[in-house]
Design a protein around this nucleic acid. Sequence first.
DNA 1: GTCGGCCGGATTGTTGACAATCGTGTCAGA
DNA 2: TCTGACACGATTGTCAACAATCCGGCCGAC
Lengths: 226, 226
Amino acid sequence: MPDPSAPPRRRASGASAAEARELLRAAILGGEYLPGERLVEAQLCERFGVSRFNIRTAIQELAADGLVEVQRNKGAQVRKVSLDEAVEITEVRMVLEGLVAAKAAILVTDEQASELDEIGLLMRRAVAAGEFRRYSDLNQRLHALIRTIAGHRTADGIIETLRGQLVRHQFMLSLHPGRPLVSLPQHERIIEAIRERDPKAAESAMRDHIASVIEALRGIDTPGLR
Amino acid sequence: MPDPSAPPRRRASGASAAEARELLRAAILGGEYLPGERLVEAQLCERFGVSRFNIRTAIQELAADGLVEVQRNKGAQVRKVSLDEAVEITEVRMVLEGLVAAKAAILVTDEQASELDEIGLLMRRAVAAGEFRRYSDLNQRLHALIRTIAGHRTADGIIETLRGQLVRHQFMLSLHPGRPLVSLPQHERIIEAIRERDPKAAESAMRDHIASVIEALRGIDTPGLR
DNA sequence: GTCGGCCGGATTGTTGACAATCGTGTCAGA
DNA sequence: TCTGACACGATTGTCAACAATCCGGCCGAC
């Protein structure tokens, strides 16, 4: 409700702060700016065709999201998350998604249960066909659906923020061969627990799942890789 | 390391963005601006003797902390957290502090264990003497110490942010008669579990404790008070 | 050759003024 | 009296210029 009009009214040249923020966020998440790289305001102005004021606002907002780090009088740089930090972030995600899964198990409707089941089916097919990219998408869809079912805005917001901070690590993980074979049965357990409306089992299954993600993170991460 | 010098060098008139932020945060947490109240930039400029630019920056940062809400072209207002939101926030705190307690149980040193024990002793004394205010302080000190022991910066930051959003609710809760008698044994269980270096027990104890806080929240909150 | 101070370019922090927008009170018309 | 549009005041959004700061290299002295 805060952004009513979409198409036809903007000043001819330049974009607003919100647009600049999304542009910059996409550029960082897309890997166009590497961790540790300096974000020079003037350069970004030219790159995006936005005034320096708006770039500044955008940087501040992304700093609040933990995507960039600003040092006074030294400017902003893409935040570099160490492996330890990635583990910490995923630990937090573990307990939060566990909470969310438990809530989802309580609130799930029959229709949503079917949706969960369908995702599970598609996942099995994707793994059987070796379509890792597709499986990765389904993975995100599953977690997103569970959060929707739970309707826990506070946890949802935090999880989403944290997810942004680890796109790089996540990305590497999803490409690791053999991962799907480990995570598929975990996902099935989560789905089953929610469908049976068993909060404790759902939380436990979700935590086990993300705990194994943490283990994988610890073993796989190769810093310096794009 | 970002703020080296403390006393003797600032421009004569006016303060910087960071100072403005802390001033405004203190004013809000102190109840000088009620939830829902509009924060007019010009007024704040005069109140704090800060330029509008810095006020703007401060408001943005507090918005990131969830203390204020900004609506485009409509300005900022102190965020009003409903009872449901307070419950959600406390649920998140429950799982996060549970995680932190488990970590603390693993990492605690002998010296820190003694410190925990001492806080427990002081708590028992405070309750016995009916010193609720003192007990409330000890409560905060206990939770803070546990977070220090765990050294989990990610969880710590989020918990601290969430705490700020509910100072009002927390405050009311700590004054509720009978609360200490309920929470004291819970605190003792947490301390004992950490001292015995039992992560699962520590997490469980912490979650039970905060779960009871949630129950109390649901029963006690009287919106409109204070 | 090396250390310390200094100077210049580059970059960020800040300011004040201007433009866009919203809410509200007013006034004409039915 | 009620409804609607209009215009005004108040408030926020944006900009371009200026000031403060930092980082690098250069130069001189020891």
